[in-house]
Structures are given as structure tokens and as C-alpha cells.
Simulated assay, not measured.
Amino acid sequence: MEIAVIGAGALGGTFATLLARAGHTVTVTARGPALAVIQAEGISLTGAFGAVRQHPLALERLARTPQLTLVCTKAQDAAAAIGENARVLDGSPVIVVQNGLDGVRTAGALLPRSDCFGALSIIAANYAAPGRVTVTTAAPTYLGRGTGVADAATLAWRDVLGDAVPTLALDNFVGAQWTKLVVNMLNALPAITGMSVQAVVDHPGLRRVMTDSMRETVRVGMKNGVRFGSLQGLGDRPLRAFSRLPTVLGQVLPLRLRTRMGDVPNLGSTQQSLNRGQLTEVDYLNGAVVREAALAGVRVPVNELLTALVHEVEARGVPLAPPDVLERFAALRR
């Protein structure tokens, strides 16, 4: 099958390489040094899926209509990337592999004749350099759309992707996006401090802040009538129970997620963007919680400050020391 992957970062590189290994004809879009490296050397994948090198066709933008497209850009880049390729994509099926809540809606608005799906990938992958990706955790990808039961088209694309990477079809995909948003609260503090996700969770003070950001996210979803979808052993009932726990007991959630990661340092996608000198997608993660809270008429001070601190580190180019971060959060409670 002819499959396009828009974006050749950590996840895009992973999907492109594994799909090519499974026998599909893969085209990736990339820019700058990454485009030149992939054209000359292909993409090298190491880690949990094994050592793989594939040579997909690499272009700045798509030249022909594929049978399926995966959009693997950061959330803030999705609209521009889809728009640049809309002429050849509109009418062709698209799967948006992305964090946040807006990806499928964005694709549907720009590609009104396309069948649009979302994918939530739990794969932990580090972008080591242009054309080089290391997978630290091989985990499933969850595919779906809407709030109902997974339809026949979702099941068919699950089978296509499943030849390359473990893929599950999801009921209540929108609810699962909210569950993944809770999990993505792992991202901000590593970016702010320059520490790995595991090191942040192991730090008692930072773990408490992370727990509070997760609790705010769940409570905003509940306020907006969200029924959380099943993902990584989490779901509506466990998350609602988590939201009622005192912070000291609620810390079991980030500790549980940390256990699943193993000991290979996971930087998180937000910190990886900072390390490459790029803007982060924090406005589509913690910032999404802030926006949804405003719609519900509530405040989320922890996520507001996390969003501001990530932007501060973006501007400074230097991470903040944990004591300085904790002092900023202590000021919220005064």
C-alpha cells in the first residue's frame, strides 16, 4: 500500500520505518537537514522495535495522492502541514497521530472530503538526530474517531497499521484523547527542568506538582461532561476516583506510569522540541486544559503556571532548577 507520513520526527520516523519494513511503499515529508539526511541515508530506528534502516521516499511536500496518510507533526504544526498538502490529500483517508484534543477536527476542517481518524500512540521515541530515532518503549497505538463504537473503517485501518506496529481500535476515541491528555501531564516538568520523565517522577516535590496537574485535567474533563476513554489501564471510573484522592495518595498515578517506562531515560516530547530549538506543543497539552477550564468557568492554576514556565524556558533556552520551580508553585498556595 502507498502510505504517506507527514513529519519525520520521533513518531513520524518510527511509523515510516516500521511501515516500510512491513512492505508498504512509504513517502515522508521533511524539511531542512532532516530532508537531506533521509534522502541520502534513509531513517535509522534503534531500540525496542529492533535495529531497522529503511529508505522511504523523502519530499518537502507530497507530489501524489497516497492510499493512506499519517499526520505525525507536533500539534502546533498540523494545520500548516496539512494545508501545504491539501491539494493531493483531500478525499484520501488521513490518520492524525497527535497529542491534544484538536487534531482530527483540524484535519476534517482542512480536508472536508477525507475520512479522518485519530491515533494515540503510547510509543516512547527519542529523536536522536535527523534520520535517527531511538524507541525507548514499544507500546500500542490506539486508533478511532468520535464518541461511539469503533466502526468498520477504523477496524480496517487498524489491521493495516497492525502489520507494522501494535494497533488497537478504540471505542469513545474522544474520551480516550482526554485520558491521553492526563497522561501527557508527564511532559511539562521534564521540559522545564531538563530532567527525564523518570527523574521528575522520582523527585517528591515535582511529583506532587505533576499529580496536581493531572487532577486538574480530570476535574476539567468531568466539568465539561467528558466520559474518559480506556487507555493504558485508565478509564472513566479510575480517573474519577483519582480526582477525589488527596494529592499524597494520588501520586500513585504518575508512579504507575513511571514504572511502565522502565529505566531508559525518557525525555518526553516537549523537552525533545526544546532540545532541537523548536517551539513546543505545550499550548495543546497544559494549555488545552487551561482553555477547556475557561469554557467550564473554572481555574486551573497549576496548569496555567506549567504552561507559562515552559514558555519561559523556550525564551531563555535554559532549564530551571527544581528548587526554583517548586518555589514558584509554593507561591500559588500562599
Rank of each mutant, 00 (worst) to 15 (best):
residue 80 A to C: 10
residue 264 V to D: 14
residue 265 P to Q: 12
residue 114 S to F: 01
residue 174 V to I: 14
residue 209 V to L: 07
residue 167 T to H: 09
residue 253 L to G: 04
residue 6 I to L: 05
residue 144 G to Q: 04
residue 29 T to M: 10
residue 328 R to P: 04
residue 107 A to H: 00
residue 255 L to T: 12
residue 306 L to I: 07
residue 317 G to W: 04
residue 207 R to W: 15
residue 186 L to N: 14
residue 30 A to H: 12
residue 314 E to N: 08
residue 174 V to L: 15
residue 18 L to D: 03
residue 113 R to Q: 14
residue 261 M to P: 13
residue 122 I to W: 14
residue 202 D to R: 14
residue 115 D to S: 13
residue 178 W to Q: 02
residue 38 I to R: 09
residue 240 R to E: 07
residue 292 E to F: 01
residue 224 N to D: 00
residue 206 L to Y: 13
residue 258 R to T: 07
residue 139 A to I: 03
residue 252 V to N: 12
residue 204 P to S: 02
residue 225 G to V: 01
residue 260 R to G: 15
residue 282 V to H: 12
residue 5 V to E: 08
residue 121 S to V: 08
residue 88 V to F: 05
residue 273 S to K: 10
residue 81 A to H: 03
residue 38 I to P: 08
residue 267 L to I: 13
residue 63 A to N: 10
residue 207 R to P: 12
residue 72 C to N: 12
residue 134 T to R: 15
residue 34 A to P: 10
residue 294 A to V: 02
residue 60 E to G: 14
residue 20 A to M: 09
residue 28 V to T: 06
residue 49 F to H: 08
residue 100 G to F: 00
residue 90 D to I: 04
residue 143 L to D: 06
residue 217 T to L: 01
residue 299 R to K: 14
residue 17 T to Y: 06
residue 231 L to S: 11
residue 86 A to G: 11
residue 187 N to M: 04
residue 112 P to E: 04
residue 225 G to Y: 02
residue 281 E to H: 07
residue 211 T to A: 03
residue 31 R to L: 08
residue 299 R to H: 11
residue 25 T to Q: 13
residue 188 A to Y: 09
residue 241 A to E: 14
residue 54 Q to F: 06
residue 54 Q to S: 15
residue 234 L to D: 03
residue 318 V to Y: 14
residue 254 P to A: 05
residue 131 G to M: 05
residue 209 V to K: 11
residue 273 S to C: 12
residue 132 R to K: 13
residue 169 A to S: 15
residue 290 V to D: 01
residue 264 V to G: 05
residue 69 T to Q: 05
residue 83 G to T: 10
residue 33 P to A: 15
residue 194 G to T: 07
residue 269 S to R: 07
residue 109 A to T: 13
residue 48 A to L: 08
residue 52 V to Y: 05
residue 286 N to G: 10
residue 245 L to I: 08
residue 26 V to T: 10
residue 254 P to T: 03
residue 231 L to V: 10
residue 18 L to E: 04
residue 113 R to M: 06
residue 104 V to K: 00
residue 279 L to A: 15
residue 304 E to C: 01
residue 103 G to Y: 00
